[in-house]
Amino acid sequence: ENVVSAPMPGKVLRVLVRVGDRVRVGQGLLVLEAMKMENEIPSPRDGVVKRILVKEGEIDDTGQPLIELG
């Protein structure tokens, strides 16, 4: 899985990584606010952040691509 998608609709509060960062499975990639709760979205695998497809403050839909890993 190279693309991390939104598991729920919500607002992107914080992006915790930058392009080029090495990430490990379970590491937080970004924080979504949904139903007044903050949810940290973890990396599904080890890899390198290739692209960040959303910006802080954006509203996303379920299934929307958020981050691409390489």
Score class of each variant (00 low, 15 high):
65 P>C: 07
41 I>V: 10
63 G>V: 05
38 E>K: 08
20 G>Q: 03
67 I>T: 01
25 V>H: 10
15 V>M: 06
69 L>S: 02
15 V>E: 06
61 D>Q: 14
51 R>W: 03
38 E>M: 10
17 V>L: 00
12 V>Y: 00
13 L>C: 08
29 L>M: 06
70 G>K: 12
65 P>A: 11
31 V>D: 01
67 I>N: 01
63 G>N: 10
48 V>Q: 07
56 E>Q: 10
68 E>S: 06
36 K>T: 12
69 L>T: 01
33 E>C: 15
62 T>R: 12
70 G>E: 15
34 A>I: 14
38 E>W: 08
24 R>F: 12
26 G>T: 03
43 S>N: 01
67 I>S: 02
44 P>H: 09
5 S>D: 06
54 V>K: 05
50 K>A: 10
10 G>Y: 03
39 N>T: 14
4 V>H: 02
55 K>W: 12
4 V>A: 04
50 K>C: 13
16 L>N: 05
10 G>H: 03
16 L>P: 02
8 M>P: 04
57 G>L: 06
53 L>I: 09
66 L>N: 02
28 G>A: 14
17 V>P: 00
27 Q>R: 03
22 R>C: 14
21 D>Q: 13
24 R>Y: 12
22 R>N: 11
25 V>D: 05
6 A>V: 05
29 L>Y: 00
46 D>H: 09
68 E>G: 03
16 L>T: 04
50 K>I: 14
34 A>S: 14
4 V>I: 12
9 P>H: 10
64 Q>D: 13
3 V>L: 12
54 V>N: 02
5 S>A: 12
19 V>T: 07
6 A>L: 08
45 R>L: 12
67 I>P: 02
46 D>M: 07
64 Q>M: 11
39 N>S: 12
29 L>P: 00
66 L>Y: 04
58 E>D: 14
12 V>D: 03
56 E>T: 10
25 V>S: 11
61 D>R: 14
26 G>Q: 04
18 R>T: 11
14 R>A: 08
28 G>N: 09
68 E>W: 10
18 R>V: 11
21 D>P: 00
40 E>S: 08
68 E>F: 08
37 M>G: 12
30 L>K: 00
36 K>A: 14
52 I>K: 01
13 L>T: 10
